[in-house]
Design a protein around this nucleic acid. Structure first.
Length: 139
DNA sequence: GCCAACGTTGGC
DNA sequence: GCCAACGTTGGC
């Protein structure tokens, strides 16, 4: 029976030297593979097609770069040679007018509860609708 | 480049 | 099951 699940919002983190926003834009779609952390996996597995994702660059000028969309919910990660890991397919939707830096996020009282700040090593995290909107508004 | 925080591994 | 050692992530 169809019912109305509320949409979730997400943030995925990537080092730009590994896979940057511009490459993602050029490719138009990517398999989000290589997650090897249980909490991040749990979040990946909760993603539903059509949900929005903030794409964040870590390490080099840490900032939110753009918005992506979940194309395909979790399936077995084809890059995993052992263990039970998952991947999703993401596609870029748009580039922020300007990147929103971690420093700005840290300075915003409304964004203090974000896992981005509290759990700096988590690479796939849930974001509230309010946090998502606030970050977009900053761009 | 350094280092703190965190997650994982392995000895006991 | 505990905890020390180690490896990795990511901010600065």
């Amino acid at each position: 029976m169809a019912h109305h699940d509320s949409l979730n919002y997400w943030l995925v983190k990537q080092e730009p030297s590994t896979y940057c926003w511009d490459t993602f834009l050029k490719e138009g779609e990517t398999e989000w593979t290589g997650v090897r952390n249980f909490q991040a996996r749990k979040n990946l597995r909760a993603m539903q097609a059509g949900e929005q994702v903030l794409f964040y660059h870590s390490v080099i000028r840490p900032s939110v770069m753009g918005v992506a969309l979940v194309v395909t919910s979790a399936y077995p990660d084809p890059t995993a040679t052992e263990g039970d890991w998952s991947a999703v397919i993401l596609k870029p939707v748009y580039t922020l007018r300007r990147p929103v830096t971690l420093a700005e996020i840290k300075a915003d009282l409304d964004l203090q509860d974000m896992a981005l700040i509290k759990q700096s090593r988590l690479s796939v995290m849930s974001v509230t609708k309010q946090e998502f909107s606030k970050i977009l508004a900053k761009a």
